[in-house]
Computed example of a mutant assay.
Amino acid sequence: MSVARSLLLFVLAAVAEIGGAWLIWQGVREHRGTWWIGAGVVALAAYGFVATLQPDAHFGRILAAYGGVFVAGSLAWGMAMDGFRPDRWDVAGALVCLLGVAVIMYAPRT
């Protein structure tokens, strides 16, 4: 398994899922309309397909590891798109989650 390919797929999945959820949020909560909501639905569907491209064959492992990417990616998205400023505990939690990703996905298997 190529770690670089796997990481790229995790990033693409995060952009699709977090971006899709953000678009729906904007459409509903910020009253930007149905086009934003529709774009969010399309992005969320894309996330479902991107996740299947991971080289590992175990659904549970992929989704568990992706959870850590989602946590860190959500904080990053909030910083980039909404001016959110994480505190040290947000950052610490995200780093713990990313450590979990590394252990789950890339630890040597016997």
Results as ranks from 00 to 15, higher is better:
Ala102Leu: 05
Met79Val: 15
Val91Asn: 14
Leu44Ile: 13
Gly20Thr: 00
Ala4Ser: 09
Ala80Ser: 09
Ala16Gly: 06
Val96Leu: 13
Glu17Tyr: 07
Gly68Lys: 05
Val28Gln: 11
Trp89Lys: 08
Val28His: 08
Val3Lys: 12
Leu95Met: 11
Ala107Gly: 07
Ile18Phe: 02
Pro86Tyr: 03
Ala13Leu: 02
Ile18Gly: 03
Ser2Arg: 09
Asp87Leu: 10
Ala64Glu: 05
Thr34Gln: 06
Val42Asn: 03
Ala21Lys: 10
Gly100Ser: 07
Ser6Trp: 06
Pro55Glu: 07
Leu53Ala: 14
Ile24Asp: 11
Phe84Gly: 00
Pro86Glu: 00
Phe49Gln: 13
Val3Cys: 12
Asp87Pro: 04
Ala64Met: 02
Asp90Glu: 02
Thr52Cys: 06
Tyr47Lys: 05
Val50Ile: 15
Ala94Tyr: 08
Arg5Ala: 03
Ser2Pro: 08
Val71Asn: 00
Thr34Ser: 12
Asp90Leu: 00
Gln26Lys: 07
Leu75Met: 14
Ile62Pro: 04
Asp82Gly: 12
Ala92Arg: 07
Cys97Lys: 05
Val28Asn: 05
Gly27Phe: 07
Gly78Ile: 00
Ala4Asp: 04
Leu63Lys: 08
Val41Ile: 15
Gly48Ser: 10
Gln26Asp: 04
Gly40Arg: 09
Phe49Thr: 12
Ile104Phe: 09
Gly40Tyr: 05
Leu23Ser: 03
Ser2Thr: 08
Gly20Ala: 02
Gly73Ala: 08
Ala107Gln: 11
Arg109Tyr: 07
Gly48Tyr: 05
His31Glu: 11
Ser74Phe: 01
Ala39Met: 12
Val15Tyr: 07
Ala92Gln: 10
Gly48Pro: 05
Val50Glu: 10
Trp35Val: 15
Val50Asp: 11
Ala16Gln: 10
Trp36Glu: 08
Ala4Met: 07
Gly73Lys: 02
Ala64Pro: 04
Ile104Val: 15
Leu8Ile: 09
Asp90Arg: 08
Leu9Phe: 07
Gly100Lys: 10
Val96His: 12
Arg5His: 06
Gly100Pro: 04
Ala76Thr: 03
